[in-house]
Design a protein around this nucleic acid. Structure first.
Lengths: 226, 226
DNA sequence: GACTGTGAATCTATTCACAGCG
DNA sequence: CGCTGTGAATAGATTCACAGTC
């Protein structure tokens, strides 16, 4: 047990699909729908039905033959698994373009995340209110972290500062860092780092487009049926 | 050949690692370093050296025993593979928080992406300049696409509008859509869709933190060595 | 000696095939 | 039937082990 590819007792690949299951399940709950089959979910999300059933098995959800899965049970089980039923506090460090966008995003509470403080190295930003949060100077980082006991940090500083700031966060007792800098962070293993590199998605798209350009697109532009 | 998990002749997993190799290789070139071993690269990126060698094999790079790989050759080969040596035009649809952040990001040109137009449904935004780009009304979308022959679109509209706008893009001849809406898009197969769901990374981090909370952290807060 | 390059082995994820149940 | 649940098979990714080269 406790293999590297598992989070607790759940494969990482399953955890990665949880957000889309949860999105659909919440939407169905909103519409008053009570049960759903693995087949229907798979169809909506472009997955095999058996994949859906395996995933649900991993998070301990059991369905009913003939009818399917209880929508409410799905929502609760997945929220529990991700801890998205309560809000976990986070600080955001680096109020540039990306940091500003994240501070302005209103959807994080549905994902169990509440940004409670923001910091930036630029003294001109200190005191400014961005997305409802007052930006603090970097000197206040450690005192604030120790006072608030925040478990998570969102790292949106410039690449040059990434490692240094991450180390400060680690020393101040941060448990998890959501790393948007694109730089690999070198930290003691008790700090959980999740890299969020937007360039990866762009690389996959670029490579697919390039591959198609090279072999010549069979279908000319513009003929999508209505 | 041409298996589903391949892009052209390269496994998707390899393509996903290309951006980090490229980042390091470009930085080394900047520092005037001429050769690098798979061992050193692996160490910097937290990968096994043999993984690095396999990946380079897939994109047709060959190294020299004893010395390693030519940094310049690495950069050129990876840029070619991703088509990141020239700029590919894109339109951005949906100038909300996220769209604004992406319009403000100056790093896309290094990733082969140039945003040449932006659109939003809100008439109040039309004519405003965001990140150097003048926002156009949605009615101008199709004429602009046909005039500019843009191959790519960045979709940052609200989830409710995602499918409808994506279909308009597809009908206007868009080849690839970078989809930030979190909604799965249902489009004809000649349109390449790359989903960029920020909630996935957050889910993995949340699950790791939750798993650790449950089994009780062995190490108390704050004792990171200097 | 210090590297690269690659077939074989292992590990992981997905898919198949089908048993079981209401 | 029309579903779920799961062992077995397959496909895919990584790692091992080592041959080859400068």
């Amino acid at each position: 047990m406790a293999y590297g590819y598992m989070i607790g007792s759940i494969p990482i690949t399953t955890v990665q699909r949880l957000p889309s299951y949860l999105r659909v399940a919440r939407e169905m709950r909103r519409q008053g729908r009570e049960v759903v089959s693995s087949n229907r979910l798979g169809e909506l999300l472009g997955l095999e039905a058996v994949q859906v059933r395996k995933d649900f098995g991993f998070i301990g959800i059991t369905g009913l033959p003939k009818s399917g899965y209880q929508v409410e049970e799905l929502v609760l089980a997945m929220e529990h698994c991700l801890c998205w039923n309560r809000v976990r506090d986070a600080v955001l460090v680096g109020v540039g373009h990306l940091g500003t966008a994240l501070l302005g995003y209103r959807g994080f509470s549905a994902h169990g995340l509440g940004i409670c403080a923001a910091f930036d190295i630029d003294p001109a930003l200190a005191g400014k209110v961005v997305g409802g949060i007052t930006v603090s100077p970097m000197d206040d980082l450690e005192p604030a972290l120790r006072r608030l006991e925040v478990p998570m940090a969102i790292l949106t500083v410039a690449p040059e500062a990434a490692q240094e700031v991450a180390l400060r966060l680690a020393r101040a007792g941060i448990e998890g860092i959501w790393n948007f800098t694109g730089c690999p962070l070198n930290l003691p293993p008790q700090v959980i780092v999740q890299d969020q590199d937007i360039a990866i998605g762009l690389a996959v798209l670029s490579a697919k487009l390039s591959a198609r350009d090279r072999q010549g697109a069979a279908i000319p532009r513009g003929d999508v049926p209505d």
